[in-house]
Amino acid sequence: MKNFLLQLFFLLFVNNALLCMEKNDQELKIFKNLRCLICQGQSVADSNSDFAQTIKLVVKDKLKDGKSENEIYDFLVSKYGEWIVYKPQMNKTNFILWASPYLILISGLILFFYLMRKRHK
């Protein structure tokens, strides 16, 4: 247990240091989450098309202006629609998408243990 706590502490500490150093990582993360609209199933990070290059520039500019990751997604979604982001935004229509897997998991488990209990008695 002590070992575990020690490690946890170690991690939290080091992580913060990592965060400030990797600006490049954030860029890449955003590129990977954007669909290259003129390609077949490729992200902006993977593509080298004109479209991908332009989007990369725009993202870099926005990051320089101090925009957050989500603000950049919102901007691009407002221009190109939700199709452009690979991580569907949390909103009313996508709620079912995000929630239903866990609903299935949990309801199944509850049902399972309920039936088992019942048989036990």
Binding site: N33, E82, Y86, K87, P88, T93, L97, W98
Partner: peptide
């Protein structure tokens, strides 16, 4: 609802 969305790696990884 006539809206086109993408469900890609970040979704699956998160869930």
């Amino acid at each position: 609802i006539n809206s086109k969305i993408s469900v890609g790696p970040p979704f699956y990884n998160t869930i």
